[in-house]
Design a protein around this nucleic acid. Structure first.
Length: 463
RNA sequence: UCCCCGGUAGCUCAGCAGGUAGAGCGGGUGGCUGUUAACCACUUGGUCGGCGGUUCGAGUCCGUCCCGGGGAGCCA
């Protein structure tokens, strides 16, 4: 018989139905009255299905009574109304098949709460816990919401390269990709001769698909990427990964205002979708992870994001009575403490900061008329900080070239990117969103390593 | 990479002023019960992160390295 998902059995509550389910045993409670209770979870939802196993089963004594937490089972039986509290229906087993047993001495998961630090050391088993199951389902829902949002608005999903030839995109250290043997690399004048390498020149893992997305935006109108991104920074924080997923929309004929509008619409859409589709998991996060997470999302959907310029932000900060570790001065970068102060103490809501000094932003951002600021935007949310960073792009050939020379970036490496400003250039804008930070914000999970299945961080590649 | 805190049983932790290790949970056995992180009794369980030093004696003090957490920087 075809396997039913537990989520559907619990939702339909079809008493009398004959079903087959399969999953992993979470807990078992024995009764000497000749039966036992088995809680089965198949990952389809947070809740378990209570299975009633009775003595009359042919393998009751030899197998059923010896079942351990973690065992894989297939159960066929009848859905019945449950006389006990805590569940509306339960499954009275006719057949219980042990598919994979578990040695209780060595199985690391117990039927009690584990620390996230410990669970990180068993990343292959942690999806069998309530929290990581819920994270996986919510992450999946957010992914789907991302695609749905852009698809409904006519954006083209674009696959930008993972391996890139540009060695400096201004977004941090990169991972080198090579087929050369490190201890016997061919040398030329004392340096590694990359003409002997696979691509004939140095190659790296991408830190952003933005530049390539711009090329397609200036042909297709609106595009977005959603893929893996790599940063070789030695960042050891609960907000950084060496491998993470990034969402990057890029829109032709769109200025900074349109960009801000898309970013806020996007966040609101995702939050609504998750609250709508993952109610049970979200209630779990509210109860065990962050009591404010559901309220926060509900508030964000209804309220407007505060928008102010960098200059205005600096004015507010310099008048603040708060004592900051880093002094506030026009031209300085806004520090994490400043972001938190503005978000959590002044406005009590997410913030869109725009028009930063050009000296603290990358070369590709459009320079304002004042020649001092660029059309940049950062979306800041409480706790996480910067969740979105974007800008209107410089679309004037000469200005972009001047900026590159100013920052000592070799234009030769960006010839094709510059050409986009030569042939049918148009105003265009886009942003990048760290997908895991979004999942963190939605779920309230405090460490980014717990919202991606197998986190890659400095010194950690065990799974 | 920098600052602070931590690493003791499978897990979560206690171990006060240096005197050769404890609890709860888990596992095992038995009992009880339409049970809900079930309950009760008994039982099992440790190179006290690694290396070096001080000392008659180090989980405890010192040095160093490794790992984890929090904060900062870099950023998404």
């Amino acid at each position: 018989m075809k396997r039913s998902r537990i989520v559907n059995i619990l939702a339909s509550q079809e008493v009398g139905a004959t079903v087959t389910v399969a999953g992993w045993l979470r807990t078992k409670r024995e009764s000497k009255g000749g039966f036992c209770f088995i809680e089965l979870n198949d990952g389809s939802c947070l809740r378990n299905l209570q299975v009633i196993a009775e003595e009359r089963l042919s393998n009751y004594r030899e197998e059923v009574l010896r079942l351990q937490t973690g065992s894989a089972l297939r159960v066929s039986g009848t859905v019945l109304e449950s006389p006990g509290r805590g569940q509306a229906v339960e499954l009275r087993a006719e057949v219980i098949e042990l598919l994979g047993e578990t040695d209780p001495e060595s199985y690391p998961l117990q039927k009690k709460r584990h620390s996230f630090e410990f669970l990180r050391t068993i990343a292959h088993l942690r999806p069998r816990t309530n929290t990581f199951g819920a994270v996986a389902r919510v992450r999946n829902a957010i992914s789907f919401a991302v695609h749905r949002f852009f698809q409904e608005r006519g954006f083209i999903y674009l696959h930008t390269p993972i391996i890139t030839g540009s060695d400096c995109e201004g977004a941090g250290a990169m991972f080198r990709v090579t087929t050369l043997e490190l201890d016997r690399a061919p040398l030329l004048d004392g340096h590694v001769d990359f003409s002997m390498d696979f691509f004939g020149s140095p190659a790296n893992l991408t830190v952003s698909g933005q530049l390539e997305a711009e090329a397609y935006a200036l042909a297709m109108g609106d595009v977005y990427t959603f893929g893996p991104t790599f940063r070789a920074e030695n960042s050891n924080t609960p907000r950084h990964l060496a491998e993470f997923w990034m969402v990057e929309p890029e829109m032709a004929f769109c200025d900074l205002d349109g960009n801000v509008e898309l970013a806020t619409d996007f966040l609101k859409f995702v939050f609504s979708y998750v609250l709508d589709q993952c109610r049970e998991d979200m209630e779990f996060f509210k109860r065990f992870i962050d009591p404010t997470c559901v309220d926060t999302l509900e508030k964000l959907i209804s309220q407007d994001f505060e928008r102010l310029s960098y200059t205005e932000a600096v004015q507010i900060l310099s008048k603040a009575e708060e004592s900051f570790e880093f002094p506030v001065d026009w031209g300085c970068d806004i520090q994490a403490e400043h972001e938190r102060y503005l978000c959590e103490k002044v406005f009590h809501r997410p913030l869109v900061l725009t028009d930063y000094p050009k000296t603290i932003k990358p070369f590709y951002m459009k320079v304002n008329r004042d020649k001092k600021t660029v059309r940049a935007m950062d979306v800041l949310v409480p706790k996480i900080g910067e969740i979105i960073g974007g800008s209107q792009r410089e679309d004037d050939y000469q200005t972009l070239l001047d900026r590159m020379n100013e920052l000592e970036i070799n234009p030769d490496a960006y010839r094709w990117y510059l050409e986009l400003r030569k042939f049918g250039s148009a105003p265009h804008s886009g942003f990048g969103l760290g997908f895991e930070r979004l999942v963190q914000f939605v779920t309230g999970m405090s460490n980014i390593r717990d919202v991606i299945p197998f986190p890659r961080t400095p010194g950690n590649i065990s799974f």
